[in-house]
Amino acid sequence: MNRLKIALTKGRLEKSAIELFEKAGIDCSPLREDTRRLIHTLPTEPLDILLVKAQDVITYVEHGVCDLGIVGKDTILEHGNSFFEILDLGFGACRFVLATKKGEDLYGKYRDIRIATKYPKVAKNYFEKMGMNVDIIKIEGSVEIAPLLGLADAVVDIVETGTTLKENGLQAVDDISRVSARLIVNIASMKINRTQIMEFVDKLDSVL
């Protein structure tokens, strides 16, 4: 039997993923130790766990150097290309919204509006669907500041509760899509390691 490699998104999703694994009866004790190792071998399952950044989960799975990955739908929408997206794991739930300064009328302008976002592809797809021509500016963090400084008319961003928006005087004007953690599988590996992967998938599915 091949050992499967699964790439987990480091940080927030990692904790929930490990909880889910343990709920499904998978011993994750090596991950609980405080080490700087990046690859962890599980004692009871033919599974190696890699902790990497969200975007890298997709890169490793698409190239087939990892068989499986756990990554947020936000990263999939922005960077995903070809893999099987086989389970919605439910945790890490949040949503993509379009938000403006409170009271601002985004659609009443006689010029192309400017959007600040960390997710240019998500923003582009959304406005294409809306049939609107917009100018997108990529911002690396805290995009809420951009409308306040007058750099952009609105932001496309990911929100969990909306508190950050509110505290910065912004309001969501449209929901773009729902986001949560997903289990993704390399296309070829799914076919080559079918039994093993489907067993693992069913194991997780049964405790969701």
Partner: peptide
């Protein structure tokens, strides 16, 4: 139809 081979991550 698609052809897959062990160790190659794409058809």
């Amino acid at each position: 139809f698609l052809g897959y081979s062990e160790g190659i991550g794409e058809p």
